[in-house]
């Protein structure tokens, strides 16, 4: 699970062009939106594409993202349970 979290942090930074943020800056339970990394609605869509492209997970309902994208921890748990690749 730790390796997956590291991988997710790296992919989030690359996919969302978080130029001034390193893997070490993101704690597992940091909120991704709001006061955390300050991501916006376009970033949320980009994370949905990331799940599909990298892990073969298609979110049927984008509203699911609110729960899944709370933190790297919640993302990792969801990916581990649902990945198809």
């Amino acid at each position: 699970m730790d390796a997956l979290k590291q991988e997710l942090k790296e992919r989030i930074i690359n996919a969302l062009n978080l130029e001034d943020i390193s893997i070490e800056d993101i704690q597992d339970n940091d909120p991704l939106f709001g006061d955390g990394l300050g991501l916006d609605s376009i970033d949320a869509l980009e994370l949905i594409v990331l799940l599909d492209k990298e892990y073969g997970i298609k979110l049927a309902d984008p509203k699911q993202g609110k729960e899944i994208f709370q933190s790297v921890e919640t993302m990792a748990q969801f990916v581990a349970a649902n990945r198809t690749k």
Binding site: N17, I42, D43, E46, D52
Partner: peptide, 9 residues
């Protein structure tokens, strides 16, 4: 087929 929302905007 993975269009990027961040590019599309």
């Amino acid at each position: 087929y993975y269009p990027s929302p961040a590019v599309f905007v």
